Each structure stands twice: as structure tokens, then as C-alpha cells.
Simulated scan of single mutants.
Amino acid sequence: MNNYYKYLPVSEVDKSWGLYVLNVGCTHIEKAQVYPPRNHPAHHYFKWDEGRVFDEFQLIYILNGEGMFESKSCPLTSVKSGTLLMLYPYEWHRFKPNDETGWEEYWIGCKGNILQHIHKHHFFPKETPAYYLGTHESVINLFTDIIEHTRLEKTGYQQLISGMLLHLFGKIFSLSKQIRFDKKNKHEEVINQAMSLMQANISSSLSFEKIAGDFCISYSLFRKEFKLYTGMSPHQYFLQLKLNKAKIRLMGSDDPVKQIADELGFESAYAFSKIFKAKMGCAPNHFKKKIRR
């Protein structure tokens, strides 16, 4: 790894995009090396005894070494190779590699309304800022690609790397959920079968209590694990499938609302219209008119 860092100029246009990168870098820390390195920029330098606070988000991916991390919301915790640390604006923190191992780190500092929205909705809680992803090639490639674009600074590069950065946030969220689910959960096959069953019976009514019983697990456990895996309860997931199918029918056919409601297993056209409006913001007929203007 060749050590590199760069602090980027940011225009008002870049800020209005909603997500922008402030700084990037990669550093190889030798065993027993002073950390942070002495050449670290003053406004990002810190001493272990004092820690640090700054006004940006940062992603720090640790490889080939071990260390420790602590923040205001997270007690002192060990960091192993393959861990991604997430730092938050105005949140005191400190971290360092072990003298016995050193480590390699990639980092990106960033800001923007998109990140504020993600943080507000607790996708990445301050209480759990360390995400073990393992040594993941796709994550490394995103960091290195972003770094390479900052070397060149071609016109429009901020918008390009902000899109890559959002991809990185999505990758971190997805991988952390998959790893956590694989370690702690034995019901992934059951959930996938249930999802396939819903797809195959989209025109019917289903009893999720019966489905759970057929898989020999309690309904409460089935619902809990299904929501952990998909982000939705079984009922909401099945309803979303039906509404997506209804939207396709409304956009591509002249079938009356009652016929669509009947064929998708709703109790009545009134019940279908009420649910459709609650979820989509307008009644089925109004939706059809807007699409076909």
C-alpha cells in the first residue's frame, strides 16, 4: 500500500448534490509506529489520551492488523482486520492499531443531507460504529476507485465519487446484515421459501400462521426473523407484492379496478382502493390517469 491522502475543494454545487467527499486516504501503519502519523494534518490529528471530535462523517476500513476503538456512545472495543469503523459528526472518538501488529487503513470523510437522513433513520447507530465485514474485495475496490478519482480531479468527479460513496454505504449495510444473519440465524431457507410461496400465490389469500406451522416454527418467531431479513413483516411484504402487481396492471391494461382487486385476492374493490391510496398516495383510477397522460 502506497500512503496517500488528499483534502478536497468543495463547491456550492457539490454541496447542493446532497452528498460530497471532503477527504480520502490510505495508510500503512508499521508495528509500534506512532499513531496517527506525524504528518497527519493538524485538524485531524489527535492524541490517544485526548481523543478527537470533528464535524464530518468518516468511514475507516481496517485491514492486516488489529487495534482498539472507543467513542462517546461505544465502550472500548477490539478491532480486527476486516472491520469498518464509522465516525459521526460531533461524536468524541479515538482509535489506534496495536503496537504488535500495526494495520492498513482506507478512509473517506464526507458530509451531506443524504448522510443526515441515513443517520436520522438509524441505519448506522452511534452505539454500534464497528462493522465486521471481513476482507471484502468489492469494498476495497470502492475505496481505491474513489481514491483514484480524487488523484485526477476531472470535472464532475465529486458527483461521481459521491455516487460510489453511497454505493459503499449500501454495501456496508447489506454485508453487515448478511454476516450477522448468517452467524445468528438458522431460518434463512425458511424465509426464502416463504417469499417464493408469496410470489407464487400473489392472487390468493395466505395464512402466515399456517405457513409458519408448515415450517415447524412459531408464528411469532417466523414474523420476527422475516422482518429481520426483509425489513418488513410477512403481511406487509405480501401486500407490497400485490400492490406492485396492481400498479403493473393499472399501467398496462384497461381492466376495471374491481377486476384487478378480485384477481389479486382483495376482499373488495373498496378495500383495494383504500389500501392502494394509503400506500401510494392516490386512488387506483387516479394513478392510472396520471400514468397515461
Rank of each mutant, 00 (worst) to 15 (best):
M1P: 11
M1E: 04
N3A: 12
Y4T: 03
K6F: 07
L8E: 11
E12H: 13
D14P: 05
D14M: 06
V21G: 06
G25D: 10
I29T: 15
E30N: 12
A32C: 14
V34C: 01
R38G: 03
N39A: 09
H40S: 13
H43M: 04
H44R: 05
F46S: 11
W48R: 08
E50S: 10
R52C: 07
R52N: 07
R52F: 14
F54M: 07
E56N: 12
E56V: 03
F57R: 05
L59I: 14
L59G: 03
I62S: 11
E66T: 13
K72H: 13
P75K: 04
K80I: 14
S81Q: 06
G82H: 10
G82S: 11
L84C: 15
L85C: 10
P89D: 08
H93A: 06
F95L: 03
N98V: 02
N98I: 01
E100R: 09
E104L: 04
E105L: 15
Y106P: 08
W107S: 07
G112L: 14
I114R: 13
Q116P: 02
H119W: 15
H119E: 15
H121T: 09
F123I: 05
F123W: 05
P129E: 10
A130E: 03
T135R: 10
S138A: 14
V139Y: 06
L142D: 06
F143D: 03
I147L: 14
T150Q: 09
R151I: 06
T155E: 15
Q158K: 08
Q159S: 14
L160M: 13
G163D: 08
L165Q: 05
K171A: 15
K171N: 09
L175I: 13
L175A: 04
Q178S: 15
I179F: 06
I179R: 13
R180Q: 12
F181N: 03
F181K: 04
K184R: 11
K186T: 14
K186G: 10
H187W: 12
H187F: 07
E189T: 14
N192F: 08
A194C: 07
I202A: 02
S205E: 12
L206M: 12
F208H: 13
E209D: 10
I211Q: 04
G213Y: 05
G213V: 02
I217P: 07
S220V: 07
L221H: 15
F222Q: 08
R223A: 09
K224N: 11
K224A: 03
K227A: 06
Y229P: 11
T230G: 14
G231P: 08
M232Q: 11
P234M: 10
P234G: 07
F238D: 03
L239Q: 12
K242A: 00
K245H: 00
A246T: 00
K247G: 00
R249N: 01
L250S: 02
G252T: 04
D254A: 00
V257T: 10
V257H: 00
I260T: 01
A261R: 00
F266W: 02
F266A: 00
E267T: 04
E267P: 01
S268W: 03
A271G: 02
F272V: 00
S273M: 00
K274Q: 05
I275M: 02
A278W: 00
K279L: 02
G281H: 01
C282F: 05
A283S: 14
F287W: 11
K290C: 01
R292Y: 01
